Amino acid sequence: MKAAVLKTIGHSLEVMEWPDPQLGTGEVLVEVGYAPVLPYTKDVITGKRQYLLEPPLVLGAGAVGRVLQVGPDATVLKPGDWVLCDATVRARDNPLFPDITLQGWSARGEGGLVLQRYFRDGSFAEKIRVPTECVVPLGEVDASFAPYWCAMGTLLVPFGGLVAGHLQPGETVLISGATGNFGSSAVAVALAMGAGAVVTPGRNVKMLDELVRRFGARIKPVVLTGDAITDQEAMRSVAGPVDLVLDILPPSVSSEVSRNALLAVRPYGRVVLMGGVGMLGGPELELPYPWIMRNNITIRGTWMYSSDTPVKLVRLVKSGLLNLQQWRVTKFPLNQIDAALHFAAVDQEPFTLTVVEP
């Protein structure tokens, strides 16, 4: 099959012939229809993101496609089904503390690398072998709509964070990083889940205005000034008490920005940390012990999401509460993978989606 292979960190992807994946028990073979290209894919390839990867491997996290073959233990899936391939692969031999790898993307720790050595090849290929539990049926899908399902790769992350933070209908949630790729998706998901108001701090006024134009009065923008006291007060007051803060800032942002957002949460409020702050070095996130204790603040770290999250998000889309067609999709054939990577890196406005079509 044709695949885009990362032979070594720091070298460009090479589109080449690659061995077809061989199906085993507990696995599904999927013909890749479309695979999302994340804006920071080049940072993974160059090693800037410092992800755990052991090349050579086929890069690419997640896909939308059709089932080619199922293992002998599959009871629902059948050839021809449209499915979402979730890149988050969990070890099956320790349900309490499962090791995790992101197929074709990264691993968490040594246990994650063990998984990666088997489920190593990702979605920039004509076919992909996926654990059965990572294959989510989509039901009837119009072929012209299929590329939009690739937005799930970005939506799943903030959805997992909001679920972990127990967002309730009518609550006010603050999205720290709201003008970015994952952050703007978090805004859409929070509204679909019934948030009464979504506070969107940021410096990019154009993107803040776009969120208001797109979603209306429930969006409460805050233009950050860089002054901690001023910014915290603005975030606290723009929509009343903040029940939940979801921080999903990228590694390039200072921890001070995260800290200011976290300190805007109300007493007895919740905070979910799932961004990349600190991954590239710099000052740590310093939060005041007395403030956390006396205000009964709950702080939770969340990496990715629970195993049932993709099914729940598919249902949210199918219900009509979350409209994937608000994304603008740009498609590239697999043999133009370099052009796709470049386009994804520069086309980073909210609700834009780059995909490859093997």
Results as ranks from 00 to 15, higher is better:
V5F: 13
L6M: 04
T8A: 15
T8M: 15
T8P: 11
I9T: 15
G10C: 07
G10T: 01
L13K: 06
E14N: 07
V15E: 07
M16E: 15
W18P: 07
P19C: 04
T25F: 10
G26P: 09
E27G: 13
L29V: 01
V30Q: 08
E31P: 04
P36M: 09
V37K: 13
V37N: 09
V37M: 12
P39T: 00
P39R: 05
P39L: 01
Y40W: 14
T41L: 13
T41P: 07
V44R: 11
I45T: 10
K48M: 13
Q50R: 15
Q50F: 04
L52Y: 06
L53G: 06
E54M: 13
E54G: 11
P56G: 10
L57H: 08
L57I: 03
V58F: 13
L59G: 03
L59M: 14
L59E: 08
G60T: 00
G60C: 07
V64H: 10
G65Q: 06
G65P: 12
R66E: 08
V67H: 09
L68Y: 01
L68K: 13
L68M: 07
V70Q: 12
V70F: 10
V70W: 09
P72S: 15
D73A: 10
D73G: 11
D73H: 12
A74E: 15
T75Y: 12
L77G: 06
L77T: 00
P79L: 03
G80W: 09
G80R: 07
D81W: 05
D81Y: 11
V83K: 02
L84R: 06
C85G: 12
C85D: 04
D86N: 05
D86V: 00
D86Q: 04
A87S: 14
V89W: 04
R92V: 05
R92S: 14
D93E: 14
D93K: 04
N94L: 04
N94P: 14
P95G: 09
P98A: 02
D99A: 14
I100C: 12
L102R: 03
W105L: 07
W105I: 01
R108A: 13
R108W: 08
G109P: 06
G109M: 02
G112T: 00
L113P: 05
V114W: 08
R117S: 13
R120E: 03
